[in-house]
């Protein structure tokens, strides 16, 4: 095997994307927990911490540009780098959506309605968290079958989201809080969509073709 430097640069890049994935998963988990415990100070901190995710994504972009310029990769190597860029961009958006969830919660007048819909919300949150973990694991091992399964999980989330939003719209309680909860569940559903995007990029990295899982 030649090009050891190049190979280690590719590994480093992927390592950084995986770490970004961990960060985003942790943020999501922390936002859900802070909402559940009505810990507003923690939510504020999490909103501020999003800057780190943005910086990590930028660092990955810069590193990828340098590797492309220096090594002029082709074929599988080029896809490896393109997929690092694509996944880090999707992860960054997922980070933004977690922040949006925190902001929506902070706009709510009281935690009452969250608690009345707690079971449904946490059930969606659990599915989303599981999906993030699984898709990043599939990325780690470039497991195409696992990546294809992710799409099925997204369908579950979409269904649960549809039911919850319907209930919220029919709710006679505070319209403002119902709207914020609808936003929160919408943001979770969007994170699921980004996980599906990541799954599609995994398939692209392995097979060289785009596959629409949505």
């Amino acid at each position: 095997m030649t090009r050891n430097t190049f190979v280690s640069e590719l590994d480093t890049l992927k390592q950084e994307v995986k770490e970004l994935g961990k960060k985003v998963e942790n943020t999501f988990r922390a936002v859900v927990k802070a909402m559940d415990t009505d810990n507003r100070a923690e939510l504020e901190d999490l909103i501020d911490a999003d800057e780190e995710v943005n910086k990590a994504e930028l660092a990955i972009n810069e590193q990828a540009v340098l590797v492309i310029a220096r090594q002029q990769p082709v074929a599988g190597d080029l896809r490896h780098i393109i997929v690092c860029l694509k996944i880090s961009s999707d992860l960054e958006r997922m980070g933004d959506l977690s922040v949006d969830m925190a902001k929506a919660y902070l706009h709510m007048a009281s935690p009452g309605m969250f608690h009345r819909k707690r079971e449904e919300l946490l059930s969606i949150a659990d599915k989303v968290r599981l999906m993030i973990g699984r898709v990043m694991k599939a990325y780690d091992t470039l497991d195409v079958l696992q990546a294809q399964d992710i799409a099925g999980m997204d369908d579950d989330i979409d269904r649960a989201y549809g039911v919850l939003v319907k209930e919220l719209l029919q709710s006679r309680e505070s319209t403002e809080d119902a709207a914020q909860l609808a936003f929160i569940s919408r943001f979770m559903e969007r994170i699921g969509d980004y996980c599906t995007n990541i799954a599609e990029w995994i398939i692209y990295e392995v097979n060289g073709s785009r596959f629409d899982l949505n």
Binding site: T2, R3, P73, V74, A75, G76, D77
Partner: peptide, 9 residues
Amino acid sequence: TEDYITGRF
């Protein structure tokens, strides 16, 4: 082919 064009040998 992949190994050659990506500089693996």
